[in-house]
Computed example of a mutant assay.
Amino acid sequence: MTDTNGTPEVEIADAVTGNWVDTIAPQRARPFLRLSRADRPIGTWLLLLPCWWGLMLAMLNTGRASLFDLWIALGCAIGAFLMRGAGCTWNDITDRDIDGSVERTANRPIPSGQVGVRAALIWMCTQSLLALLILLTFPPMAVLLGFAALVPVAIYPFAKRFTWWPQVFLGLAFNWGALLAWTAHTGSLGWPAIVLYVAGIAWTLFYDTIYAHQDAEDDALIGVKSTARLFGDTTPRWLRYFMVATVCLFGIAVILSAIGGNVLALVVAVGGPWAMGWHLAWQQRSFDPEDSAKLLRLFRSNRDCGLIPLPFFAVALFL
Protein backbone atom coordinates (compact mmCIF):
# COMPACT_ATOMS: atom_id res chain seq x y z
CA MET A 1 0.00 0.00 0.00
CA THR A 2 1.38 3.47 -0.90
CA ASP A 3 0.23 7.01 -0.27
CA THR A 4 -0.44 9.62 -2.93
CA ASN A 5 3.27 10.47 -3.12
CA GLY A 6 4.26 6.87 -3.68
CA THR A 7 5.57 6.43 -0.12
CA PRO A 8 4.76 3.05 1.43
CA GLU A 9 2.09 3.24 4.11
CA VAL A 10 2.54 1.39 7.37
CA GLU A 11 -0.01 -1.39 7.76
CA ILE A 12 -1.62 -2.07 11.14
CA ALA A 13 -1.56 -5.72 12.15
CA ASP A 14 -5.15 -6.12 13.41
CA ALA A 15 -6.94 -3.63 11.15
CA VAL A 16 -9.99 -4.85 9.25
CA THR A 17 -9.05 -5.71 5.67
CA GLY A 18 -10.35 -3.16 3.15
CA ASN A 19 -11.56 -0.80 5.89
CA TRP A 20 -12.73 2.71 4.97
CA VAL A 21 -9.70 4.39 6.54
CA ASP A 22 -7.32 2.57 4.20
CA THR A 23 -9.51 3.00 1.13
CA ILE A 24 -11.44 6.29 1.11
CA ALA A 25 -10.28 8.47 4.03
CA PRO A 26 -8.14 11.52 3.12
CA GLN A 27 -4.45 10.68 3.16
CA ARG A 28 -3.50 13.20 5.84
CA ALA A 29 -6.29 12.01 8.14
CA ARG A 30 -5.39 8.33 8.01
CA PRO A 31 -2.72 8.26 10.77
CA PHE A 32 -5.09 10.10 13.14
CA LEU A 33 -8.03 7.86 12.29
CA ARG A 34 -5.81 4.82 12.88
CA LEU A 35 -4.79 6.37 16.19
CA SER A 36 -8.51 6.41 17.05
CA ARG A 37 -8.88 2.80 15.82
CA ALA A 38 -11.43 3.90 13.21
CA ASP A 39 -10.06 1.07 11.06
CA ARG A 40 -11.03 -1.38 13.84
CA PRO A 41 -14.67 -0.66 14.75
CA ILE A 42 -15.09 -3.49 17.26
CA GLY A 43 -13.99 -1.27 20.14
CA THR A 44 -16.69 1.29 19.36
CA TRP A 45 -19.29 -1.48 19.40
CA LEU A 46 -18.02 -2.82 22.73
CA LEU A 47 -18.28 0.67 24.21
CA LEU A 48 -21.71 1.34 22.67
CA LEU A 49 -23.56 -1.89 23.42
CA PRO A 50 -23.71 -1.43 27.23
CA CYS A 51 -25.21 2.03 26.53
CA TRP A 52 -28.01 0.50 24.48
CA TRP A 53 -28.54 -2.23 27.07
CA GLY A 54 -28.87 0.38 29.80
CA LEU A 55 -31.25 2.52 27.75
CA MET A 56 -33.55 -0.37 26.86
CA LEU A 57 -33.66 -1.69 30.41
CA ALA A 58 -34.47 1.83 31.61
CA MET A 59 -37.39 1.97 29.16
CA LEU A 60 -38.52 -1.47 30.37
CA ASN A 61 -38.33 -0.15 33.93
CA THR A 62 -40.34 3.03 33.33
CA GLY A 63 -42.68 1.54 30.72
CA ARG A 64 -42.29 4.52 28.44
CA ALA A 65 -40.28 5.64 25.42
CA SER A 66 -39.93 9.03 23.76
CA LEU A 67 -38.21 10.78 20.89
CA PHE A 68 -35.52 11.84 23.33
CA ASP A 69 -34.68 8.17 23.78
CA LEU A 70 -33.85 8.04 20.08
CA TRP A 71 -31.43 10.91 20.65
CA ILE A 72 -29.93 9.09 23.65
CA ALA A 73 -29.33 6.03 21.44
CA LEU A 74 -27.84 8.12 18.62
CA GLY A 75 -25.88 10.38 20.97
CA CYS A 76 -24.38 7.33 22.67
CA ALA A 77 -23.36 5.94 19.26
CA ILE A 78 -21.60 9.14 18.22
CA GLY A 79 -20.15 9.59 21.68
CA ALA A 80 -18.88 6.00 21.75
CA PHE A 81 -17.03 6.58 18.48
CA LEU A 82 -15.49 9.82 19.74
CA MET A 83 -14.60 8.67 23.25
CA ARG A 84 -13.27 5.35 22.06
CA GLY A 85 -11.05 7.35 19.71
CA ALA A 86 -9.96 9.71 22.48
CA GLY A 87 -9.33 6.80 24.84
CA CYS A 88 -7.28 4.89 22.28
CA THR A 89 -5.28 8.03 21.53
CA TRP A 90 -4.56 8.45 25.24
CA ASN A 91 -3.66 4.77 25.48
CA ASP A 92 -1.18 5.07 22.60
CA ILE A 93 0.39 8.21 24.06
CA THR A 94 1.05 6.49 27.39
CA ASP A 95 2.08 3.19 25.76
CA ARG A 96 4.26 4.59 22.96
CA ASP A 97 7.45 2.95 24.31
CA ILE A 98 5.74 -0.37 25.08
CA ASP A 99 3.95 -0.52 21.70
CA GLY A 100 7.25 -0.21 19.88
CA SER A 101 8.45 -3.40 21.58
CA VAL A 102 5.41 -5.53 20.68
CA GLU A 103 5.16 -6.99 17.18
CA ARG A 104 1.39 -6.47 16.84
CA THR A 105 1.52 -2.81 17.90
CA ALA A 106 4.90 -1.63 16.61
CA ASN A 107 3.35 -0.08 13.48
CA ARG A 108 0.82 2.06 15.33
CA PRO A 109 0.99 5.77 14.40
CA ILE A 110 3.02 7.05 17.37
CA PRO A 111 5.76 4.37 17.69
CA SER A 112 6.10 4.24 13.89
CA GLY A 113 6.61 8.02 13.74
CA GLN A 114 3.49 8.90 11.74
CA VAL A 115 2.07 11.09 14.51
CA GLY A 116 3.94 13.08 17.16
CA VAL A 117 2.91 13.17 20.81
CA ARG A 118 1.87 16.84 20.68
CA ALA A 119 -0.33 16.26 17.62
CA ALA A 120 -1.82 13.19 19.32
CA LEU A 121 -2.69 15.22 22.43
CA ILE A 122 -4.45 17.85 20.31
CA TRP A 123 -6.35 15.10 18.48
CA MET A 124 -7.39 13.51 21.78
CA CYS A 125 -8.68 16.83 23.13
CA THR A 126 -10.59 17.55 19.92
CA GLN A 127 -12.43 14.24 20.09
CA SER A 128 -13.15 14.72 23.80
CA LEU A 129 -14.60 18.20 23.29
CA LEU A 130 -16.90 16.99 20.52
CA ALA A 131 -18.11 14.20 22.81
CA LEU A 132 -18.67 16.78 25.55
CA LEU A 133 -21.05 18.72 23.31
CA ILE A 134 -23.20 15.60 23.00
CA LEU A 135 -23.01 14.82 26.72
CA LEU A 136 -24.27 18.30 27.62
CA THR A 137 -27.59 17.56 25.89
CA PHE A 138 -28.33 14.85 28.51
CA PRO A 139 -29.91 15.40 31.97
CA PRO A 140 -27.63 16.82 34.71
CA MET A 141 -27.05 13.51 36.54
CA ALA A 142 -26.02 11.84 33.30
CA VAL A 143 -23.62 14.71 32.60
CA LEU A 144 -21.99 14.22 36.00
CA LEU A 145 -21.62 10.50 35.31
CA GLY A 146 -20.04 11.34 31.97
CA PHE A 147 -17.37 13.42 33.69
CA ALA A 148 -16.80 10.67 36.29
CA ALA A 149 -16.11 8.21 33.46
CA LEU A 150 -12.84 10.04 32.77
CA VAL A 151 -11.31 8.52 35.91
CA PRO A 152 -11.19 4.84 34.78
CA VAL A 153 -10.35 5.99 31.23
CA ALA A 154 -7.30 7.88 32.53
CA ILE A 155 -6.14 5.02 34.77
CA TYR A 156 -6.57 2.09 32.37
CA PRO A 157 -3.38 2.51 30.26
CA PHE A 158 -1.28 2.36 33.42
CA ALA A 159 -3.10 -0.62 34.98
CA LYS A 160 -1.00 -3.26 33.21
CA ARG A 161 2.05 -1.82 34.95
CA PHE A 162 0.79 -2.40 38.50
CA THR A 163 -1.85 -5.20 38.40
CA TRP A 164 -2.42 -8.57 36.80
CA TRP A 165 -6.04 -7.49 36.29
CA PRO A 166 -5.89 -4.53 33.85
CA GLN A 167 -9.01 -5.95 32.17
CA VAL A 168 -10.99 -4.91 35.26
CA PHE A 169 -10.05 -1.29 34.64
CA LEU A 170 -10.98 -1.67 30.98
CA GLY A 171 -14.34 -3.05 32.08
CA LEU A 172 -14.87 -0.12 34.45
CA ALA A 173 -14.30 2.28 31.56
CA PHE A 174 -16.00 0.42 28.70
CA ASN A 175 -19.27 -0.33 30.51
CA TRP A 176 -19.83 3.09 32.04
CA GLY A 177 -22.38 3.77 29.32
CA ALA A 178 -24.80 1.35 31.00
CA LEU A 179 -24.96 3.75 33.96
CA LEU A 180 -25.04 6.86 31.79
CA ALA A 181 -27.77 5.76 29.36
CA TRP A 182 -30.00 4.46 32.16
CA THR A 183 -29.64 7.78 33.95
CA ALA A 184 -30.18 9.79 30.75
CA HIS A 185 -33.59 8.13 30.42
CA THR A 186 -34.70 7.98 34.07
CA GLY A 187 -32.93 11.06 35.45
CA SER A 188 -31.30 9.10 38.28
CA LEU A 189 -29.12 6.08 38.86
CA GLY A 190 -30.76 2.79 39.88
CA TRP A 191 -29.76 -0.66 41.10
CA PRO A 192 -30.62 -2.40 37.81
CA ALA A 193 -28.08 -0.18 36.04
CA ILE A 194 -25.42 -0.92 38.66
CA VAL A 195 -25.95 -4.68 38.37
CA LEU A 196 -25.89 -4.37 34.57
CA TYR A 197 -22.62 -2.43 34.88
CA VAL A 198 -21.03 -5.27 36.88
CA ALA A 199 -22.33 -7.79 34.30
CA GLY A 200 -20.63 -5.74 31.61
CA ILE A 201 -17.35 -5.81 33.53
CA ALA A 202 -17.55 -9.61 33.67
CA TRP A 203 -18.19 -9.63 29.90
CA THR A 204 -15.14 -7.42 29.35
CA LEU A 205 -13.01 -9.78 31.42
CA PHE A 206 -14.23 -12.57 29.14
CA TYR A 207 -13.52 -10.98 25.77
CA ASP A 208 -10.39 -9.03 26.67
CA THR A 209 -8.72 -12.05 28.22
CA ILE A 210 -9.19 -13.75 24.86
CA TYR A 211 -7.77 -10.67 23.12
CA ALA A 212 -4.79 -10.41 25.50
CA HIS A 213 -3.61 -13.92 24.64
CA GLN A 214 -2.41 -12.52 21.29
CA ASP A 215 0.30 -10.56 23.12
CA ALA A 216 1.04 -12.93 26.00
CA GLU A 217 4.56 -13.85 24.86
CA ASP A 218 5.59 -10.28 24.07
CA ASP A 219 4.02 -9.04 27.31
CA ALA A 220 6.06 -11.56 29.27
CA LEU A 221 9.29 -10.35 27.63
CA ILE A 222 8.67 -6.68 28.47
CA GLY A 223 7.02 -7.25 31.85
CA VAL A 224 3.48 -6.13 30.99
CA LYS A 225 0.75 -7.80 33.07
CA SER A 226 -2.61 -9.20 31.93
CA THR A 227 -5.22 -11.79 32.87
CA ALA A 228 -4.00 -13.84 29.89
CA ARG A 229 -0.57 -14.16 31.50
CA LEU A 230 -2.06 -14.63 34.97
CA PHE A 231 -4.42 -17.46 33.96
CA GLY A 232 -2.16 -19.19 31.44
CA ASP A 233 -3.36 -22.76 30.81
CA THR A 234 -6.32 -22.28 33.16
CA THR A 235 -7.85 -19.58 30.94
CA PRO A 236 -10.73 -21.80 29.64
CA ARG A 237 -11.89 -22.32 33.23
CA TRP A 238 -11.74 -18.59 33.98
CA LEU A 239 -13.62 -17.81 30.79
CA ARG A 240 -16.37 -20.13 32.03
CA TYR A 241 -16.51 -18.22 35.33
CA PHE A 242 -16.78 -14.88 33.54
CA MET A 243 -19.43 -16.28 31.19
CA VAL A 244 -21.62 -17.48 34.07
CA ALA A 245 -21.16 -14.19 35.94
CA THR A 246 -22.11 -12.19 32.84
CA VAL A 247 -25.29 -14.13 32.14
CA CYS A 248 -26.45 -14.34 35.76
CA LEU A 249 -25.81 -10.68 36.59
CA PHE A 250 -27.34 -9.55 33.30
CA GLY A 251 -30.42 -11.64 34.03
CA ILE A 252 -30.71 -10.15 37.54
CA ALA A 253 -30.46 -6.65 36.06
CA VAL A 254 -33.34 -7.47 33.70
CA ILE A 255 -35.47 -8.84 36.54
CA LEU A 256 -34.78 -5.78 38.70
CA SER A 257 -35.69 -3.53 35.77
CA ALA A 258 -39.03 -5.24 35.19
CA ILE A 259 -40.22 -5.75 38.78
CA GLY A 260 -43.96 -5.05 38.92
CA GLY A 261 -44.23 -5.10 35.15
CA ASN A 262 -45.68 -7.45 32.57
CA VAL A 263 -44.71 -11.06 33.37
CA LEU A 264 -44.63 -12.08 29.71
CA ALA A 265 -42.42 -9.11 28.89
CA LEU A 266 -40.10 -10.09 31.71
CA VAL A 267 -39.79 -13.67 30.44
CA VAL A 268 -38.98 -12.44 26.93
CA ALA A 269 -36.45 -9.89 28.21
CA VAL A 270 -34.64 -12.47 30.37
CA GLY A 271 -34.23 -14.54 27.21
CA GLY A 272 -31.76 -11.92 25.95
CA PRO A 273 -28.95 -12.65 28.45
CA TRP A 274 -29.70 -16.37 28.17
CA ALA A 275 -29.28 -16.31 24.37
CA MET A 276 -26.13 -14.24 24.74
CA GLY A 277 -24.79 -16.95 27.04
CA TRP A 278 -24.93 -19.51 24.21
CA HIS A 279 -22.68 -17.28 22.11
CA LEU A 280 -20.25 -16.91 25.01
CA ALA A 281 -20.24 -20.69 25.47
CA TRP A 282 -19.34 -21.12 21.79
CA GLN A 283 -16.45 -18.69 22.20
CA GLN A 284 -15.21 -20.50 25.28
CA ARG A 285 -15.26 -23.86 23.49
CA SER A 286 -13.51 -22.38 20.45
CA PHE A 287 -10.72 -20.72 22.45
CA ASP A 288 -7.22 -21.68 21.24
CA PRO A 289 -4.35 -19.63 22.73
CA GLU A 290 -1.97 -20.81 20.00
CA ASP A 291 -4.08 -19.48 17.12
CA SER A 292 -3.77 -15.68 17.01
CA ALA A 293 -6.08 -15.34 14.00
CA LYS A 294 -8.83 -17.26 15.80
CA LEU A 295 -8.31 -15.22 18.97
CA LEU A 296 -8.91 -12.03 16.99
CA ARG A 297 -12.00 -13.51 15.30
CA LEU A 298 -13.45 -14.57 18.65
CA PHE A 299 -12.78 -11.15 20.12
CA ARG A 300 -14.47 -9.41 17.20
CA SER A 301 -17.44 -11.77 17.42
CA ASN A 302 -18.44 -10.05 20.65
CA ARG A 303 -20.15 -7.36 18.60
CA ASP A 304 -22.70 -9.96 17.49
CA CYS A 305 -22.74 -11.42 20.99
CA GLY A 306 -23.63 -8.06 22.52
CA LEU A 307 -26.31 -7.38 19.93
CA ILE A 308 -28.18 -10.60 20.76
CA PRO A 309 -30.15 -9.26 23.79
CA LEU A 310 -31.43 -6.16 21.99
CA PRO A 311 -34.22 -7.82 19.93
CA PHE A 312 -35.47 -9.55 23.09
CA PHE A 313 -35.65 -6.21 24.89
CA ALA A 314 -37.34 -4.56 21.91
CA VAL A 315 -40.06 -7.23 21.80
CA ALA A 316 -40.53 -7.00 25.59
CA LEU A 317 -41.11 -3.24 25.32
CA PHE A 318 -44.06 -3.83 22.98
CA LEU A 319 -45.74 -6.52 25.07
Rank of each mutant, 00 (worst) to 15 (best):
residue 162 F to M: 04
residue 145 L to I: 09
residue 64 R to F: 04
residue 248 C to M: 13
residue 298 L to C: 09
residue 199 A to N: 05
residue 142 A to L: 08
residue 263 V to N: 01
residue 104 R to I: 00
residue 227 T to R: 01
residue 193 A to F: 12
residue 184 A to T: 06
residue 2 T to H: 13
residue 68 F to G: 15
residue 212 A to T: 07
residue 225 K to E: 03
residue 191 W to P: 14
residue 34 R to V: 06
residue 242 F to Y: 15
residue 162 F to Y: 13
residue 109 P to W: 11
residue 312 F to G: 05
residue 282 W to H: 12
residue 163 T to P: 02
residue 42 I to H: 14
residue 66 S to K: 02
residue 75 G to W: 09
residue 9 E to F: 01
residue 119 A to N: 01
residue 303 R to I: 12
residue 31 P to S: 04
residue 218 D to N: 10
residue 246 T to Y: 09
residue 98 I to F: 15
residue 224 V to T: 04
residue 306 G to Y: 10
residue 294 K to Y: 00
residue 196 L to P: 12
residue 271 G to F: 06
residue 60 L to P: 10
residue 275 A to Y: 09
residue 48 L to T: 04
residue 286 S to Q: 14
residue 243 M to L: 15
residue 213 H to N: 08
residue 94 T to C: 11
residue 155 I to A: 10
residue 146 G to R: 09
residue 293 A to H: 13
residue 287 F to H: 05
residue 129 L to I: 13
residue 135 L to K: 04
residue 207 Y to S: 06
residue 215 D to A: 01
residue 102 V to M: 07
residue 270 V to D: 06
residue 270 V to W: 07
residue 71 W to N: 02
residue 96 R to C: 03
residue 280 L to M: 13
residue 221 L to F: 02
residue 319 L to K: 00
residue 50 P to C: 12
residue 169 F to Q: 02
residue 224 V to Q: 02
residue 221 L to Q: 09
residue 175 N to D: 09
residue 305 C to R: 03
residue 253 A to W: 08
residue 217 E to W: 00
residue 256 L to Q: 12
residue 287 F to W: 03
residue 240 R to V: 03
residue 287 F to P: 00
residue 13 A to H: 15
residue 219 D to R: 02
residue 39 D to K: 10
residue 281 A to D: 14
residue 133 L to S: 11
residue 61 N to E: 09
residue 162 F to Q: 05
residue 186 T to R: 13
residue 310 L to E: 06
residue 125 C to G: 02
residue 294 K to M: 12
residue 65 A to Y: 14
residue 211 Y to S: 08
residue 297 R to M: 11
residue 69 D to W: 08
residue 140 P to L: 10
residue 18 G to E: 10
residue 72 I to R: 07
residue 8 P to E: 06
residue 205 L to H: 05
residue 158 F to T: 09
residue 292 S to I: 08
residue 292 S to T: 07
residue 96 R to V: 13
residue 48 L to G: 08
residue 314 A to R: 01
residue 130 L to E: 03
residue 46 L to A: 07
residue 79 G to W: 13
residue 160 K to Q: 07
residue 38 A to G: 09
residue 132 L to Q: 03
residue 301 S to E: 05
residue 66 S to E: 14
